[in-house]
Simulated assay, not measured.
Amino acid sequence: MDLRIFTEPQQGATYDTLLTVAKATEDLGFDAFFRSDHYLSMGSVDGLPGPTDAWITLAGLARETRRIRLGTLMTAGTFRLPGVLAIQVAQVDQMSGGRIELGLGAGWFEEEHKAYGIPFPKEKFARLEEQLEIVTGLWATEPGKTFDHHGTYYDLTRSPALPKPAQAKVPVLIGGHGAIRTPRLAARYADEFNMPFASVEDTARQFGRVRDAAQEAGRDPDDLVYSNALVVCVGKDDQEVARRAAAIGREADELRANGLAGSPAEVVDKIGRYASTGSRRIYLQLLDLSDLDHLELISSEVQSQLP
């Protein structure tokens, strides 16, 4: 089981804070550092000092880390034209020496679009499908050849399809709870399917749908990596769990029910239940970025016990 650290910087974090967490992620032996792609805080948080851009952040981290994988859960398809996104991701992959992964979603938070003047189209999912075709098509085009796409929403003519990523294949992540269209899209384009903030039972059900969709598409379901994203809150005792829950505005019992919370032994046990669904990777949503002792505890008492 791989453990990856997943951050929500729109809730309030500078680049320097993210760099500190990313370096701790690397030093403590975690597999990857991921971040969300949002421009507006959620809930009652004021979001100070303001948002940071996902791909500018990852470009900086690409030069200041050496081992960990880096990526997004999820890049909002509404924020970037697909041709531009393909260039950005390829360049950051080169800057990292081939450690980038692209999580791409349709975009959903209308308020942040209004706040920053970003169009929020109704046909977001159809656009996402076309975006995936373009981004993966550009990367797959052989050097010296050109790429064309004449679709409903995007039109590319004689693109040189450059630059190329450092990796032969940048892993593409698709995720979500949708019962029909999402599994079909994952079966066609994804290297990894991520189930965000879901119970063990709902995870098993959705993984089954994705596996069925892959078979229907003529693809081996085991070609995909299956993963979860869950909020994490671990403590050496109940008091420490309660303190960490309060620091992120949550209740310990609610987090135990809906996330990975409790003692290291409790969290290891629950991870095992997700592993039984076929999950091979968990993105630990770390909401208090100032609490590096939390990361150290997870590394020493949870990660060390996982197969």
Rank of each mutant, 00 (worst) to 15 (best):
K169N: 09
K169D: 03
V170A: 05
P171R: 00
P171V: 02
V172Y: 06
V172W: 02
V172N: 01
L173C: 05
L173F: 13
I174V: 12
I174F: 02
G175A: 06
G175K: 03
G175F: 03
G175M: 02
G176T: 12
H177I: 04
H177C: 00
G178W: 02
G178T: 01
G178C: 00
G178L: 00
G178I: 01
I180Y: 10
I180G: 02
I180W: 06
I180M: 07
R181K: 14
T182G: 03
T182W: 06
T182I: 07
T182N: 03
P183T: 05
P183C: 08
R184V: 11
R184T: 05
L185T: 10
L185A: 15
L185M: 12
L185S: 15
A186V: 08
A186T: 08
A186R: 04
A187S: 11
A187F: 15
A187N: 13
R188S: 10
Y189Q: 00
Y189A: 08
Y189G: 01
Y189C: 07
A190F: 07
A190M: 05
D191N: 05
D191Q: 09
D191V: 12
D191L: 11
E192A: 03
F193A: 06
F193D: 01
F193R: 03
F193N: 00
N194P: 03
M195N: 04
P196H: 15
P196S: 15
P196Y: 12
P196I: 08
P196W: 13
F197E: 10
A198Q: 08
A198D: 05
S199F: 01
S199W: 02
V200S: 01
V200F: 00
D202T: 15
D202I: 06
D202C: 03
T203V: 05
T203I: 10
A204P: 02
A204F: 02
R205C: 00
R205I: 08
F207P: 07
F207H: 09
R209C: 12
R209Q: 09
V210A: 02
D212I: 00
D212W: 01
A213T: 09
A213I: 09
A214G: 10
A214D: 11
Q215S: 05
Q215A: 13
E216F: 09
E216N: 06
E216I: 10
E216A: 04
E216L: 13
A217E: 12
R219Y: 14
R219K: 11
R219M: 15
R219N: 06
R219I: 11
D220G: 12
D220N: 12
P221F: 00
D222K: 04
D222M: 13
D222C: 04
